[in-house]
Design a protein around this nucleic acid. Sequence first.
DNA 1: TTAAACAGGACAGAAAAGGTACTATTTGCC
DNA 2: GGCAAATAGTACCTTTTCTGTCCTGTTTAA
Lengths: 156, 156
Amino acid sequence: MLRLSKLTDYAVVVLSRLEQDGAVVGGRVQTAPGLAISTGMAEPTVSKVLKILGQAGLVEGVRGARGGYRLARPLHAMPLAEVIVAFDGPIALTACVDGSVNACETEDHCPVRGRWDPVNDAIRHALSGITVADLSTPAGCAPMRAAASIMNLMAE
Amino acid sequence: MLRLSKLTDYAVVVLSRLEQDGAVVGGRVQTAPGLAISTGMAEPTVSKVLKILGQAGLVEGVRGARGGYRLARPLHAMPLAEVIVAFDGPIALTACVDGSVNACETEDHCPVRGRWDPVNDAIRHALSGITVADLSTPAGCAPMRAAASIMNLMAE
DNA sequence: TTAAACAGGACAGAAAAGGTACTATTTGCC
DNA sequence: GGCAAATAGTACCTTTTCTGTCCTGTTTAA
């Protein structure tokens, strides 16, 4: 139906892990290699996720030796929509969107112009109440080999 | 953010056009070539859209000479979600969601597993109130700079 | 000075989407 | 009965996008 990037899912995992590791606001930092190990994901992939999260202002990167990442905000103050936007970009309903403005000029038949906006708004509204904290499990959750599983799933 | 197939958009156009042409329940039928002309889309593409809509039970195909398509239901009784499902499949937020339950045997380790469900539900709920009729405009439709705007949004 | 770690960009392989073409089947009409 | 129109289904090729990885540069604690 609607597709999210896998990186978005990874991001939630990484963010959850950061919180579990105490890499929170004002806390100590966690390195990308460390997160790669604890999440079971490949290190370059974790790095990529963290870089994007950093650009989005969701995590704070500390450079240099003894550097790493920590959450820029508590997860419960981090709207899921921000994560999605960071990885998937703003709502993009393909279609009339595809260049060729001139091709569309001749078509005053198209009854759909701009009509997806209510849908987009509805989805944004639906997402507005959800934070990353709502997607991360409580403490009891053990480290995840899941990443490997996820990759297997991807393989299909 | 969230991506829909182009065909989904085409479908809304075609459905709207069918209604405009009076190809409604119990009405006359409209042919795929005819719809291609009136919508400005390529004929094979229109055919593809109509076939899928037919399989989804949203339009009724009449075979043979003088055949064509008509709406299986009024647009206001046609949830947009059904159209989306027909073209984009059920909600599939990354890996864990679609199929292959057994591949995720270590599911109790995955902090995210099943956690996207609330998101999916929220989106489904948001869409549940929207019908195709809500997306089809009355006759005098404005040209599309809106599409260009959307495109710019996407581009970033 | 060195090493650890982030930052940024670039790239090849893989997957999916988009569009098209071809064939088979059905059915109204002469 | 035959022809033509139109849907139904399938398969294919091209293009685009995604994914994951690598490389180089920059920063900074020890």
